[in-house]
Design a binder for these strands. Structure first.
Length: 787
DNA sequence: TCGGTTGAGTTTTTT
DNA sequence: ACTCAACCGA
């Protein structure tokens, strides 16, 4: 990869006014008076900030000050007056990142520049564009955005309408397919035939039907936000041209996480007419931290950047400011096992620090105990709990730690997990608001029509539904007409009548009352609040609390509509107390964070790397797991402690496990295998039993996992073939990918576990098979036979 | 309308 | 093994 060095005259081109030649007194004067925000940047960072013309790819390794560079770059463009805030497109992946960037830019250039309107997530920017041009893609301006839950309910209806058994063909699965297609930018007519065949042989038909339903509901799902804007751009050159010229500078964060649809979206915006010069697009990312392939991210986008944007300048940020060299070297050595990297060599000027530790535990319980003890020890030494984190591969691992911490009385916080707006009570409340504001919102209406119970059962709902479908009117209107006929039972009829009256009344108050006040009235009068007040279950008080929080956060918005808009895209719960706590989260959730001490439990084959990742994606899956390991290690500033257990309960069964191959891939000079004996003598008093009782049979060090770890200390040791870790299925897959299977699409096959089915797609030796009784699955060809 | 039973799924998760 | 959702019977 050839870095194109910066042209020395570059500064002059981009600076607002012509400046004297570099090297002279004036240049020195200019350097001295360089804006304060440039101070303290290293050479590469500064280059990344100042190279503002043309395509730039910034490869920002872990801990190299990426966010700082990004925000400084934006501040720089604004300060030089090269663009007004409204002419800069800055895309992030999460709302959190967008918020952070906004705050930091504000901090750099003062409050003088008002917020940038086009700084946000792909999705929020798309909403903004779509609201302006909704009609052009067949939507009304006030279209609703469905979340995953709505999507699945809608798909269920579509599946049922197609006369399919929604048991055998679960809506969730269809949702996954459609999501995948949308991630790849595929509209129903573009779905490849193999894929289309996948879901009961009518994947594309159902996709089409689903899209049609969305249009009649005046709704879009998350994927559509991107796709509809792409369609808008493609079909309306003038609209596209307008945005192309508007965005003089484009900036994309976490470029390694973009999917095909997002890529297409960017490509459209970055297109420049013949002879107009290259676009000023800057993509920032780290191919080594691409960990979202499973949800459609294409690392390829970043690997291909220079091809997509000829003449691109590639800048590598390799100076790490976060970790000690032991941690950094361990991580670098590990990630070097991946192929197809752009390649970076991180270095640090910091101390060597402690070595990365590897500890073997007998089982997951002991693992949690050891980590708990170590945390307490650090705490006694005066380290803050806020500066410690446990990063797990899968969320089920968290429970063991939570149990342990509760026992110890150790305060902890779980990061991630279900979001605020995903909770049932919040979604119900929002459904009430949506139904009030948008009478045509069938999904919202259906959700709360019988919540709380008001005697409008399934039968009634189905009647309403049928009438609405038959006449092509919204359900609420259908319901209204039904209450005026004799079709419904008196009881259902009267309570439906009452509900509709209420909605009409609330709607009448929309302009008269502040939204939060009206919302409170709606929740009160509908009996929703009362429902939870009467609920005697343990979580009812919490739910009421959440509802209050919802009302509180509503006050900050101009209107109810504005609030609904916000909540469908944003709304994350940042409920953090001020007490010091240990953080507990998945490795995925940890990206972008850093901690003094990081505990990484569960480094075992099958768990990490995860079996399913290997099974489904072979070598690519393994590499993504390895990147995940890399992300985990590089979160640590001073200490990284790895653990593996020789026994773990998986789906209820105790299994003995082999230590992760990733442990073998660490450089021995930076790793220390910990003698658990020293930890055992700590006066904890808890849960020694299992460990101690095993003592007479020999120490922990006789376990296979431990011995394996020991052998790693001496890499010269010859491994007996029978001592190799058990061959993992995915490994075979990884090795043999590329070998064509002898099967063809459409062939009928038999599988031991899933029965009969038809091959719907062939990918090397991986087959996608639509089974007659178990839906569609991906399996290895060796597991099926022709029939 | 509730509650017990049955069955399916059990990696990662944003928007 | 365990959880959670959907379903069926009282």
């Amino acid at each position: 990869m050839a870095d194109r060095r910066i042209d020395p005259s570059h500064d002059e081109i981009t600076a607002p006014a012509a400046l004297p030649r570099p090297g002279g007194i004036a240049a020195r004067a200019r350097a001295a008076s360089a804006p304060a925000y440039l101070e303290g940047l290293n050479a590469e960072q500064r280059r990344a900030v100042e190279t503002i013309d043309g395509p730039v790819l910034v490869l920002a390794g872990a801990g190299t000050g990426k966010t700082r560079v990004l925000t400084t770059r934006l501040a720089h463009i604004l300060t030089l007056g090269l663009a007004r805030p409204g002419q800069i497109l800055a895309v992030t992946f999460t709302n959190k990142a967008a918020r952070e960037m906004r705050e930091r830019i504000g901090g750099l250039i003062g409050e003088s520049v008002e917020g940038m309107p086009w700084l946000g997530t792909f999705h929020s920017i798309c909403v903004k564009i779509l609201r302006r041009h909704a009609e052009a893609v067949g939507l009304k301006r006030d279209f609703t955005i469905l979340d995953t839950d709505d999507q699945i309910r809608l798909m269920k209806q579509v599946i049922q309408a197609a006369d399919l058994d929604d048991k055998r063909w679960p809506a969730r699965q269809l949702a996954a397919y459609i999501d995948g297609w949308k991630n790849r930018g595929l509209t129903p007519d573009k779905v490849p035939s193999g894929d289309a065949y996948a879901f009961a042989g009518q994947g594309d038909e159902l996709y089409k039907a689903y899209q049609a339903r969305l249009k009649t509901l005046n709704a879009v799902d998350f994927g559509d936000l991107l796709l509809e804007v792409i369609r808008l751009f493609r079909e309306n050159q003038d609209v596209l041209a307008d945005f192309q010229s508007r965005f003089r500078y484009m900036l994309v964060d976490e470029y390694q996480d973009t999917n095909v649809a997002q890529y297409l979206w960017l490509r459209l915006l970055a297109q420049r007419p013949e002879g107009a010069g290259p676009p000023n697009i800057c993509c920032v990312g780290d191919d080594d931290q691409s960990i979202y392939g499973w949800r459609g991210a294409e690392v390829d986008n970043i690997l291909r950047f220079e091809k997509d944007f000829p003449g691109a300048v590639v800048i590598r940020l390799e100076q790490n400011y976060r970790s000690t060299s032991n941690i950094l070297d361990a991580a670098s050595h590990l990630i070097a096992h991946n192929e197809g990297r752009l390649g970076k060599t991180l270095h640090t000027q910091g101390d060597a620090g402690d070595k990365v530790t590897v500890t073997c535990a007998w089982d997951s319980e002991e693992e949690a105990r050891l980590i708990g003890e170590e945390i307490e020890q650090l705490q006694r030494r005066g380290e803050s709990l806020d500066d410690m984190a446990i990063l797990v591969r899968a969320s089920f691992q968290m429970r063991e730690f939570e149990d342990r911490f509760v026992t110890l009385g150790l305060p902890y916080r779980v990061i991630g997990g279900p979001r605020f707006y995903e909770r049932a009570e919040i979604r119900d409340a929002i459904a009430y608001l949506r139904a009030t504001l948008q009478p045509a919102d069938d999904l919202a209406f259906e959700r709360i029509v019988n919540t709380p119970r008001r005697g409008i059962g399934d039968a009634t709902v189905r009647t309403i539904h049928d009438v609405a479908r038959a006449r092509g009117i919204p359900m609420m209107q259908a319901a209204l007409e039904l209450t005026e006929s004799e079709e419904l039972k008196p009881r259902a009829r009267s309570s439906l009548r009452a509900l509709l009256d209420s909605f009409a009344r609330w709607r009448g108050q929309l302009d008269a009352l502040p939204q939060a006040e009206l919302a409170a009235i709606i929740l009160e009068e509908s009996g929703y609040t009362e429902m939870w007040q009467r609920d005697r279950s343990a979580d009812a008080p919490g739910r009421l609390e959440n509802l209050k929080e919802l009302l509180r956060s509503m006050e900050e918005f101009e209107s109810m509509l504005g609030f609904l808009e916000h909540i469908s895209l944003v709304m994350d719960s940042d409920a953090g107390g001020d007490e010091e706590k240990v953080s507990l989260m998945t490795l995925h959730a940890a990206k972008g964070l850093e901690f003094g001490t990081v505990f990484l439990p569960g480094w075992e084959e099958g768990l990490f790397p995860h079996q399913r990742s290997l099974d489904e994606n072979g070598r690519a899956g393994l590499e993504e797991e390895r990147r995940l390991a890399y992300v985990g290690l590089t979160r640590a500033k001073r200490r990284a402690a790895l653990f593996f257990a020789t026994n773990r309960r998986i789906h209820g069964l105790w299994q003995s496990t082999a230590s992760s191959r990733f442990l073998d891939e660490l450089p021995e000079s930076n790793v220390e295998v910990v003698d658990t004996g020293s930890l055992r003598t700590s006066p904890s008093g808890y849960g020694h039993s299992r460990f101690d009782s095993r003592e007479p049979f020999g120490s922990t060090y006789s376990t296979p996992g431990w011995q394996r770890a020991q052998r790693n200390k001496d890499r010269a040791a010859v491994r007996n073939p029978w001592n190799e870790p058990p061959l993992i299925e995915g490994e075979v897959l990884a090795r043999s990918t590329g070998a064509e299977s002898g099967y063809a699409v459409g062939e009928r096959v038999f599988h031991q576990k899933f029965g009969y089915g038809r091959v719907s797609a062939v990918d090397g030796n991986k087959l996608t098979i639509a089974f007659e009784h178990s839906g569609s699955k991906r399996v290895l060809d060796s597991f099926v036979e022709r029939h």
